[in-house]
């Protein structure tokens, strides 16, 4: 975990037409080895959706923190 560099922080609590997965799909695709994207989501449903997406696409969920109604996740290649 200490080795991971955060490439980008994505606030997806209010994602537009690309939705949280559309935005994440793009940024995660640009990740290099040793990098992670920090994702902020609202609601458990979004968190589960991202976890399922990460599993299917072969990304690692390094960390999940609950902050009130929000979830902060670290996703790496």
């Amino acid at each position: 975990m200490d080795q991971v560099k955060i490439y980008k922080e994505l606030d997806l609590t209010s994602a537009g037409c690309a939705g949280p997965l559309g935005e994440l799909n793009q940024v995660a695709g640009d990740l290099k080895e040793g990098e992670a994207v920090k994702v902020i989501l609202e609601g458990k449903e979004s968190k589960l959706l991202v976890e399922s997406w990460a599993k299917k696409k072969g990304f690692k969920v390094l960390d999940v923190k609950e902050e009130g109604k929000k979830y902060v996740m670290l996703i790496a290649k």
Binding site: A15, G16, C17, A18, G19, P20, L21, G22, N25, W53
Partner: peptide, 10 residues
Amino acid sequence: YPVEGVFARP
């Protein structure tokens, strides 16, 4: 389409 469904807003 790149993500599940036809549009990314539920």
